[in-house]
Each structure stands twice: as C-alpha cells, then as structure tokens.
Design a protein around this nucleic acid. Structure first.
Length: 555
RNA sequence: GCCCCCGUAGCUCAGUUGGAUAGAGCGUCGGCCUCCGAAGCCGGAAGCACAGGUUCGAGUCCUGUCGGGGGCACCA
C-alpha cells in the first residue's frame, strides 16, 4: 500500500535528519498519512511537522522543509511527481502520472482479490451479531445489526483475518419458555380447545403458522390432557421451526452464519460449571439473599449482578459469561466482536468486568453498540413490539425494496447515529437509490466490454502509459483507496465507510465516462482504456460484494 | 437523579481519529442525448443546536445549557 510506504519514508527521513543533526533527537510523534481534501495539496500529506514543533522548539515549516529534503535525498524511482511543503507545515506528496497509470496493470494482475491486505494474517476473529431470541421473526430493527455485522465480517476477511460469523441462540431462558407456552396454546386451539394466550405471551400471526406447522408435522401427538403441562417437544420443535424461519429470512438478505451457538449447550457440555468454578476460584462470587452474585463491584462496577436466582435458575448474565469463556478460552479467538443494540448498552460494563474476572484482557472484547432504529411510516412513528404483535418483519422490507437496497440503507449509517427508517420513503426511493448509482456504473462498464468483444477487441497488449487524462488518473486514485479503506474498517470496526467509497468509485467512473471515450478509432488508446475500465469494474464489484450486494452486468 | 448515544443543507446521512476553502443522495432551480447505457453528466440556491474553554489549528476534544433516543431487574 503506497500510503504505508509513504509513512515509512517520512519516518526514515526524520531519523536521517536527526542523525545528520538537522533536527533535535526526540521521539518521532505518530502522524497519520492523510488524503488531503483538495487536489492541489497532492495525493497524500502529513501534519507531522506541526506535531513535532513544540518538542523540537522549531518552526513547523522549517521542520517540514528539512524532512522533505531528506526524503528527496532518497531514490524514489519516479513514484512521486512532487514532494511539497505547505504552510503551516504540511508535507505533501503528489504521485506521478506514470506510476498511477502503471497501477492499472497491477490491479488487473491482482484481480478480484484486489483490496485484500495482510493486517489480520494468522488471527482469528469472531463477529457475533443479531442473535435475536428465537421467539419471533427477524424485524426491521435487526436489519441494522445484520448489515453492520455481515459487512464488517466481510471487511475483516479482506483484511486477512480468519473470520467466523456467529448467531447466539437464546434457547435456555424464560423468553423461549413463554414462546413455547404460547405455541402450545395455539396448537391446542387448532384442536378446538378453548385456551388463552398467557400474560406476556406472543400474539403475533406467525405463532399460528408455527402451530399449524407443528400440527402438519406431528399431528395430535403433542396433545396432553387438558390442564396438564405441555411436553418438552413443543419447546424444542417450536424453537427449531422458528430458527428455520429466521435462517430463511437471513438468507433472503444474503447473510449466512458459520455457527449457530446454543445457549443451552454451555449447560450441557460443562462450560457453565467450569466458568462458575473459575469465577469462584478468582474470588468474584458471593452468596446472599438466597442468590449467587458476581462481585463486579470489586472491579469498579457500581453494583454486583445476580448469577443464580434464589429459585436456582441461572440468569442470562451467567449464561453469557460461560458463553464468553467459550469464545475466549475454548475457541481462543484473538478478537471477539459483539454487535448489540443500544438497549443492551448497560450490559457492556458488566460483561467487560466478567471477562476480566475470567482472566482475559477486556480489550479483546470489542462491543459495537448501534443506536436503535426509529421506524416511520411517513410522519408517523411505528412502535415495534413482539409482545404486542406489532412487528414489521425484515422480510417484508426486503420483499418490498430488494435485498441490495435494504442492506445499503442499513450499512450506510454509522452505528452511533440514530437512524430513521421510513418505510414509505424506502419504497418510494427504491427506484432511485444510491445502490443503483453504483450498480449502474458496473453495468455500464459491462456494456462497454460486451461491445468491445463484438468488435473483436480486448485489452491485450494495452499500454497503460497512454492513460494521461486527469479523469483517467483520478479513477486510478480512487481504486487505490480500497485497500486503505479495508484497513481503516478493520481497525475501527466502522463498515459504514464502504457505501460512501463505492459511491465515490462510481462517481469517478461516470466522470471518466463523460470525458473519455473508451472505444474509438484509436485502437491503442482503446486497449489501454479497456484495461482501465476492466480494473474499475473489478473494484466496483469488490466494493459491492463487500457489502453483500450484487454487481449486475446489465440492469 | 445517574450513565451511554445523537444534534451538520428542506429531508436522510457522511466528514479520513484535531488539519488546509465542510461533502453525498433525495428534493429544488437551470442546462446537456445524430457518438460506448440519460438509472448518467454540468451548474445554482441552501448547513456545523447554543454559550464558553483547550491550541498553531475545533464539526471533531473539555465544561455548561437546550432538544431527541436508549439504559439504570433475581428480563434478555
């Protein structure tokens, strides 16, 4: 990556200047290599000199000049057209046209892998997202965690990490008990019994469908004499069916998990017991008021948390600690990323404390909290509640606007921002969504390539040295940003950068398209430009695929 | 009451970890198809909630005010 190479050049130049006595020997500050906003300032720049000024007791402009001089002393093989110093002390780098043009060949040689970096080589990372209770269908709000999680997972994979997507299935708690209770009521109703949905149950339509599925599958075999408790199969089969529904909904938006982790399994395989023993060993467990507590207050938490209720039933918190023991110790992930909705924010500090109590560095637990989605129909705010049966399913939105547009909508907002999702607006704008802007650029290139093929023309032997127009080289510049973006996302866990990049890529192409003809009488130039657009097509397709979106050949 | 997040153009959102003259889509006003796809391009109008502070430099960091969302369970 040229950006990193420039960073190393700068660091080396400072050291050389220090050795030569031109700069005082002091620690070299961290100074990111940035892309200046204005093209006049070159392709890359750094504010290093300003950061050094105080310690060095020198004018930043002076420092910048000295550093620049020591860089120029290095042989650059024509990579840069200019290395300039600008007030109050920026050092700017301008890439040469020849070097830029040559990158087209490099990108074509790399192919669809272009963008991959080795940042995460040899490291295992788990991304856990959505993990909605299997008591109802995936709703629109979950779409956000889903798009963020899946896109982040894809970006991390591109960054070289070994990535596992995981869905934690809450199949052991009170929620699924109530769900099963409701299901049994619906099931009995199918056989004419007059029973009511319990307090706090799930009145949604889908419960009827599930009951019917149970009936189709098992007939009346689950029926027990009136008033007697339901057989355990209702719970297990019901959850399984619900999960199957969820899996299909996720499939419809293009998300596949590598692993579905059962909460119950931590009890069955001894993980739970092992974890609690460990906590006790480390002195973080106390018993009072008939319950078992995690003494998080000794780790700076405001209050302790219950692990085992006075009824003897473990809390979700206890399950979760065992679950994280499995993540960090048993499966030994280097990075564990959890994506939670803002309604779980209170869970963050105590989970960090719990991980610490297990002897794991809490920084290895990375939790992304995304703000909840406000769902609107025009002006009206829609309240979601599974209990009230008022759910807008993700599936309904996907069916309405398409998977690509739905994903784009969700992934394009930073997790921290409070997002509004207007169902009416999403539908109305589905035909003029930014997604199509990007996809159109891709399809346009496909059209050009098809036409070239008809003329019996391809890019074989094309000389990229013929690419000299600003529009051509700006397109190359944009392409070179992809690996930088992958790195940024892998470090910051902010996949929302991707759609903006894809849009910029499309703009750069459309701009080029308006200004330069690819297929012309000049065969040599045509071949060179076919190389350029082929590379652009690869990069556009990669950008789209990183977001889980399709790259159509025609639209 | 305490804690977390947010407030940027008419609307929905970005803003490169503190950088140089704050951007995009939609909407709006005006222009561009005898030539590779007009789902495109070019141009106009329009904005950092408010008040202090930190420093070479603040939309970005700190404090306060106002406004909105979320959290403070032996729920998950």
């Amino acid at each position: 990556m040229i950006k990193n190479e420039i960073g190393q050049l700068v660091q080396a130049a400072v050291r050389k200047a220090q050795e030569a006595g031109d700069l005082p020997a002091a620690a070299i500050p961290d100074a990111p290599i940035e892309r200046p906003q204005r093209p006049e300032h070159g392709d890359y720049g750094t504010g290093l000199a300003m950061r050094m000024a105080r310690a060095a007791q020198m004018n930043p402009l002076e420092i910048a000049k000295i550093v620049a001089r020591h860089i120029e002393g290095d042989s650059q093989n024509g990579v840069f057209a200019a290395i300039e110093v600008a007030p109050p002390g920026f050092i700017n780098f301008r890439l040469s046209r020849d070097w830029l043009a040559a990158q087209v060949d490099a990108i074509l040689a790399t192919g669809p892998e272009f963008g991959n970096i080795s940042l995460g080589a040899g490291k295992k990372v788990q991304v856990e997202f959505v993990s909605a209770n299997p008591v109802g269908p995936i709703h629109v709000g979950n779409g956000r965690g889903l798009a963020l999680g899946d896109t982040l997972a894809r970006a991390l994979a591109a960054a070289g990490f070994e990535v596992e997507r995981e869905y934690f299935v809450n199949d052991a708690g009170t929620q699924t008990d109530i769900f099963a209770e409701t299901l049994y009521v619906r099931y009995q109703q199918l056989f004419g019994r007059e029973v009511e949905i319990p307090e706090g149950g799930y009145p949604g339509e889908y419960m009827l469908d599930l009951a019917n599925a149970l009936k189709d599958e098992l007939g009346d075999s689950l029926l027990r004499p009136e008033g007697e408790p339901k057989p355990p199969e209702v719970h297990d089969r019901g959850v399984a069916l619900m999960l199957e529904n969820i899996r299909q909904d996720l499939d419809a938006i293009g998300v596949q998990y590598d692993n579905w982790f059962s909460e119950r399994s931590v009890y069955d395989d001894g993980t739970y017991k092992k974890t609690m023993d460990l906590l006790r060993e480390h002195g973080f467990v106390s018993e009072r008021e008939g319950a078992v507590w995690f003494v998080s207050s000794s780790l700076g938490e405001e209050k302790d948390n219950v692990l085992v209720r006075s009824t003897g039933a473990p809390t979700y918190f206890a399950s979760d600690i065992a679950y994280h023991y499995d993540k960090f110790v048993t499966r030994a992930f280097d990075r564990v990323i959890n994506i939670w909705g803002a309604d779980h924010q209170g869970h963050v500090p105590r989970m960090k404390a719990a991980v610490t109590a297990l002897g794991v560095d809490p920084d290895r637990l990375e939790i992304i909290i995304y703000q909840l989605v406000t769902l609107k129909r025009g002006e009206e705010v829609v309240r979601l509640s599974k209990r009230a049966g008022d759910i807008v399913t993700l599936r309904s939105v996907v069916d309405e606007v398409g998977a690509d547009a739905a994903r784009y909508n969700f992934v394009t907002r930073a997790a921290d921002s409070h997002m509004e999702f207007d169902i009416e607006l999403a539908k109305r704008q589905s035909a003029e969504n930014p997604v199509y802007y990007v996809q159109y650029a891709h399809a346009r290139i496909a059209g050009i390539l098809a036409q070239a093929a008809e003329r019996g023309l391809d890019f074989e032997g094309g000389d990229v040295g013929l690419l000299k127009e600003d529009a051509e080289l700006d397109l190359v510049r944009k392409m070179l940003r992809l690996p930088e973006l992958i790195e940024q996302i892998a470090l910051s866990n902010e996949p929302h950068q991707l759609p903006y990049y894809a849009t910029e890529m499309a703009t750069a192409f459309h701009d080029f398209y308006e200004k330069c003809r690819v297929l012309s009488d000049d065969e040599a130039l045509s071949r060179a430009r076919l190389k350029l657009v082929s590379a652009a097509k690869t990069v556009l397709a990669r950008s789209l695929s990183l977001m889980g979106m399709s790259a159509p050949e025609r639209m």
